[in-house]
């Protein structure tokens, strides 16, 4: 390391101190929730200086005595469904917007941009009516479609931008070799766009996994609740089951972290790696 020798000891120490402090700030809340989830003595939840007995009692409580497992499965179905649907249709549209010139292209990009601006509060009442007319209230499909209003515009916008960074000579080579435009997209551009697609997959999954406003209005029976809706019942004005809430929180972070670690490799990969050397 010292062979590089471009940085003095002092500035290196300052750099690492800053990063350690920043990392500690980033990790502390998660670690604190994790610690609290292990405190089985409920009196210690509001006493930061005492640990009390540690154990997995809260986890057992959550898994055995609540519908947590059902909510978990519901959230997984909704998040995975939203991600698959949104990223696929947004990718085809983003590719068309990046490579082809067609009437309505600018309005489409504007729609992507502007739709992202609509807060749930604007759409939630009329969307409730639409889903009710389609018979999709209190169903996975309905919530997946509702979440797509958030995920699709973002994914379309980001993927169009990503596809723009891929040299068009790759498409031309594909077309010359006899691939259809969709074939070019599917066989050449998608594999080259893994980093960009990873970001959108990650984003859609995380967003759908944590969505609160739509889920708390469109889901009505406890068996259909997603995690945020179900877990909010642990801490209300009347009860404060911090043990169960923190244990559930830790269990919720795991799938998010799994997806995260699967895609993080691609997250910061160079934007135009491989492909055509210009």
């Amino acid at each position: 390391m010292s062979a590089r020798g471009t940085r003095s000891r002092l500035s290196s120490a300052a750099l690492h101190t800053t990063l350690v402090l920043a990392s500690a700030t980033a990790v502390f809340p998660v670690a604190w929730v994790g610690l609290t989830s292990l405190q089985t003595d409920r009196n210690t939840w509001s006493q930061p200086d005492t640990l009390g007995t540690l154990g997995l009692g809260n986890y057992i409580d959550v898994l055995a005595n609540t519908q947590f497992a059902t909510w978990f499965a519901n959230s997984l179905i909704v998040a995975a469904g939203t991600t698959a649907l949104a990223v696929f249709i947004a990718a085809t549209a983003g590719y068309a917007a990046s490579r082809m010139r067609f009437p309505g292209q600018r309005p489409l990009m504007w729609m992507f941009l502007i739709t992202q601006m609509f807060p749930a509060a604007v759409l939630i009442v009329p969307l409730y009516n639409v889903l009710s007319d389609l018979g999709l209230l209190n169903s996975y499909g309905g919530l997946i479609l509702a979440q797509c209003t958030v995920a699709v515009p973002y994914c379309g916008w980001m993927l169009k931008g990503y596809f723009d960074t891929i040299p068009i000579s790759i498409d031309e080579a594909g077309l010359i070799d006899g691939l259809s435009p969709f074939g070019t997209f599917w066989r050449l551009i998608v594999p080259l766009s893994k980093p960009g697609i990873a970001v959108t997959v990650f984003y859609s999954f995380i967003t759908a996994w944590g969505e609160v406003a739509f889920a708390s209005v469109f889901l009505q029976s406890e068996g259909r609740y997603t995690l945020p809706v179900g877990m909010a019942t642990f801490v209300s004005d009347f009860t404060a089951e911090w043990g169960m809430l923190t244990a559930a929180s830790m269990l919720v972070m795991i799938p998010a972290a799994v997806v995260f670690f699967l895609v993080q490799r691609h997250l910061i990969a160079g934007l135009t790696t491989g492909g055509v050397k210009s």
Binding site: V27, V30, G210, V212, P228, A232, A256, A257, Q264
Partner: peptide
Amino acid sequence: LILPWAVPPFV
């Protein structure tokens, strides 16, 4: 440093 991003906002 990326960890907070992996934490769902409700959690």
